[in-house]
Design a protein around this nucleic acid. Structure first.
Length: 644
DNA sequence: CTAGGGTTAG
């Protein structure tokens, strides 16, 4: 019944005018004198507001009304087709352009070129360009085609067009460079990117702030953060976007403490951060576990009225989750009006990393119910949640559904989750079989996951096999040598341990230094083992010695602890970073406040003992958090529900 | 034609 109604309404009889009242209402008398200008004005407005579907509807209405589109109509209609990626409508519009005879108008010409580029029909864009002799002399046409090549990742075409442009003596402006520079956003293209940098300077465009910002981002995307920083320092008039580009650049490369330093510097220069700045800062807080700075940022978000920005809310969910505040993460998530797949991924990942696999799975199902299509990242978060919580069957179910139901090709990151899942469940052979069925080449993480499982289950045979593979792919990754060595240790295989040591020495690999840090006064204070760089170094070491002497007396510290302590000092390794951070906190925080120390690697037993005794002796609460694994050690006991 | 942004294991 419903079907019939719909059919009757939407399909008017052939040859008869549509009978809906809206069309009649807007109808303009069909005569050659029907004015075009009012339509154009409205069309331009809608296009400027990015209301493209409405703009196209208006264009159709305009045609029906009998008004004829002109030079000032087509650009906005074409832009709408391009933005919505509607190649068929775009081609139809092209027909209208030809009929109206305004293909040679520069504004129309560039709009046609960019429409085809946005619809991924870059060759059609080129045809338009070649077909019109006008375009050979117009900077805007080259610019349109250049940015078309860039957005369709046609590296060499973009460059040869640029060369041709220069040969023809066409004026190169800032927009040309902005269209061209982003083709060099892969490390392999860094050399060309540097040439473009020189080129910009030679052409007198080096002082254009937009070009500078664009180059800065190019260096970041090429993985050359140092070069980006050099450029950043050389820019004399840094605008908000310049600061944001550098801050996001550091954030994307995980240089979280650099982000926080730069953020402070930016504020002290009197630049007001906007939502883009805060996204970068929040993501760095997540990486560091810098909860208090994260909270400050949230207040700033409220003050600035950015509460409903989805990028910021997603970053907030992640920050709270990684700082162990799941309830807060959930509150932000629940308050979001428009939850994207990224929001769901963040909250699912949050529950997953804290061992709450059942909740993560429930949320994933809720997401599906809400009609959100999961992407590759969403599957990574649910699969890893399953593996941490021991939900082997659920994990397998999702892995198969991913390919069969959602038609997503699993990448190496999904396989490494699955190997982890099977491996933790003790099914090492199945995990190995799965690796052999992979259609993509397994990466280090896949073999690494198998190696990790071998350590849990003390399986030397499989561990040696996995190690051999993983080391081909990542020969300098110390973590894998340590894992193999630990596996031998669990199996009481001393020969194995020695072999790993020899291997590490031959390859000149040293265990990476641990570091610990503490948030204090809106700053992150970082300590390496034996660090002497902190301004309070002298006080810290003096107090540490006093403390240890005192602990020795009142608690009878065991001999081994003291021997190891002297060892660490004499061998040049230096005092463990946890101790430095703990003493720093004692010196600088009020009695009664909890001290949160964050560690990048596992906390050693002696430091645990030290913390426990200090906690008792001076009556202070400590939490040591492992920032890489989200283990929560409270009072020396691992409170994490995960069964790592 | 036009510079900066969120989620993902080990």
């Amino acid at each position: 019944m419903l079907k019939q109604c719909v059919k009757k309404k939407s399909l008017p009889q052939r040859g008869q005018p549509p009978s809906t009242s809206t069309v009649e209402f807007f109808r303009i008398p069909a005569s050659p004198a029907a004015p075009t200008a009012p339509w154009n004005t409205r069309l331009r407005e809608l296009s400027k507001l990015s209301r493209f579907p409405e703009a196209l509807a208006l264009y159709r209405q305009m045609l029906r009304s009998g008004a004829s589109p002109n030079t000032f109509t087509f650009p906005f209609a074409l832009k709408s087709c391009g933005s919505l990626s509607l190649p068929a409508s775009g081609a139809q519009l092209h027909g209208h352009v030809l009929k109206a005879g305004c293909e040679a108008e520069p504004f129309v010409l560039t709009s046609l070129i960019s429409m085809y580029s946005q619809c991924s029909l870059i060759d059609d864009a080129r045809k338009v360009f070649d077909h019109c002799p006008q375009s050979r002399h117009l900077t805007v046409c080259y610019n349109a085609l250049l940015s078309g090549y860039t957005s369709n990742s046609r590296f060499s075409d973009a460059l040869s067009l640029f060369c041709r442009m220069r040969e023809m003596g066409v004026l190169v402006n800032a927009v040309t460079m902005l269209g061209l520079i982003p083709v060099c956003s892969l490390p392999v293209h860094l050399g060309v990117g540097m040439c473009l940098h020189c080129c910009s300077v030679k052409l007198g465009l080096g002082c254009e702030s937009s070009v500078g910002n664009c180059l800065l981002t190019m260096y970041v995307k090429c993985g050359s953060v140092e070069d980006a920083r050099v450029l950043f320092d050389s820019i004399s008039c840094k605008g908000l976007i310049t600061w944001n580009a550098m801050i996001s650049g550091y954030a994307q490369h995980g240089l979280a403490s650099h982000v926080l330093d730069l953020y402070r510097e930016m504020k002290s220069c009197g630049i007001r951060p906007d939502s883009v700045t805060l996204v970068g800062v929040l993501s760095s807080c997540s990486h560091l576990g810098a909860y208090h700075i994260g909270c400050q940022v949230e207040r700033q978000i409220e003050l600035s009225g950015f509460n409903s920005n989805p990028f910021l809310n997603n970053a907030l969910i992640n920050m709270y989750a990684r700082c162990g505040k799941l309830a807060k993460a959930r509150a932000v998530f629940d308050a979001m009006v428009e939850k994207t797949v990224v929001s769901w991924t963040a909250i699912i990942g949050g529950y997953g990393m804290h061992g709450q696999g059942e909740l993560a799975v429930e949320l994933f199902e809720e997401m599906l119910q809400a009609g959100i299509r999961p992407d590759g990242a969403a599957f990574v978060s649910v699969l890893s949640a399953c593996s941490h919580a021991g939900l082997t069957d659920e994990g397998l179910k999702y892995f198969y559904a991913m390919e069969k139901k959602y038609l997503l090709q699993p990448g190496p990151e999904h396989y490494s989750c699955m190997v982890d899942l099977l491996g933790r469940a003790g099914q090492l052979q199945k995990a190995l079989d799965l690796i052999h069925t992979m259609r993509v080449r397994p990466d280090g993480a896949v073999w690494g996951a198998l190696l990790g499982a071998c350590k849990i289950h003390k399986n030397v045979e499989f561990a040696e096999l996995a190690f051999e593979r993983v080391i081909e792919l990542e020969p300098a990754n110390i973590g894998y040598y340590v894992l193999l060595s630990n596996t031998y240790n669990e199996a009481n295989n001393m020969d194995g341990i020695l072999r790993v040591r020899v291997m590490m020495r031959e390859r000149k690999l040293k265990k990476e230094p641990g570091c610990s840090y503490i948030e204090h006064g809106g700053k992150v204070h970082l300590f390496l083992a034996g660090d002497r760089g902190h301004p309070q170094t002298i006080e810290i070491y003096r107090m540490l010695n006093e403390l240890e002497d005192w602990l020795k007396e009142i608690y009878n510290l065991d001999k081994n602890y003291l021997e190891r302590r002297d060892d660490e000092r004499l061998s040049g390794m230096g005092v463990h970073s946890e101790k430095l951070a703990i003493v720093f906190a004692l010196l600088n925080t009020k009695h009664g406040t909890e001290i949160v120390v964050i560690k990048n690697l596992r906390v050693c037993e002696d430091c645990h003992l030290f913390m426990k005794l200090v906690s008792k002796a001076v009556d202070r609460q400590f939490v040591i958090r492992d920032a890489t694994r989200f283990h929560h050690f409270e009072g020396g006991v691992c409170s994490c529900k995960d069964y790592w």
